[in-house]
Computed example of a mutant assay.
Amino acid sequence: MTATPLIWDISAPVHSASPAYPGDAPYQQRWTARISADCPVNVGAISLSPHLGTHADAPLHYDASGPSMGAVDLQPYIGPCRVIHAIGCGPLIAWQHLQHAITPDLPPRVLVRTYAQAPQQWDEHLSGITTDAIARLADLGVQLIGIDTASMDPAGSTTLDSHMLVRARGLRILENLVLDAVPEGDYELIALPLKLMEAEASPVRAILRPLAA
Rank of each mutant, 00 (worst) to 15 (best):
V110I: 15
P104H: 09
P104F: 09
V182F: 04
V204G: 00
A12T: 13
L6A: 15
R30H: 13
I147G: 02
G88C: 09
L196G: 03
L174A: 01
A20Y: 01
A116I: 10
P119M: 04
H15F: 10
I78H: 14
T32P: 03
I93Q: 03
D38T: 15
P22V: 07
N176P: 02
I93C: 13
D153T: 09
E200T: 15
D57S: 05
P26T: 04
T158L: 08
D24Q: 14
T2H: 14
P91C: 04
L194W: 14
W8C: 08
R82C: 08
S202W: 02
D139W: 09
S162L: 10
E198A: 15
S157P: 03
A206Y: 00
Q121A: 06
T149Q: 03
S202D: 02
A86G: 05
A212F: 12
H125L: 10
I145S: 01
Q29H: 12
P193I: 06
M69Q: 15
G66T: 04
A116F: 04
I173K: 00
G156T: 12
D161P: 05
R30N: 10
A135Y: 10
A17M: 14
A168Q: 15
P104Q: 09
A3K: 12
L52P: 05
C81K: 03
D180W: 03
A101I: 11
V72T: 13
P26I: 05
L98P: 05
I84D: 08
L98E: 05
R169G: 00
T131L: 05
G128K: 01
C39N: 14
T54I: 02
E175P: 00
D105L: 12
G185W: 05
P154N: 04
R209F: 00
G128A: 01
S16N: 12
V43K: 11
L165W: 02
V14T: 07
D148C: 01
A33S: 13
R82I: 07
G88L: 10
W122E: 09
I10E: 00
L48F: 13
E198K: 13
I173Q: 02
Q96R: 15
T114Q: 08
A118S: 14
D73P: 10
P5Y: 03
G70E: 08
Y115V: 04
P210V: 11
L6N: 14
G66Q: 04
G88T: 12
Y115Q: 08
D123N: 13
I10C: 00
A3H: 12
K195V: 14
A56V: 06
L111S: 08
P26Q: 04
Y27N: 08
L126Q: 09
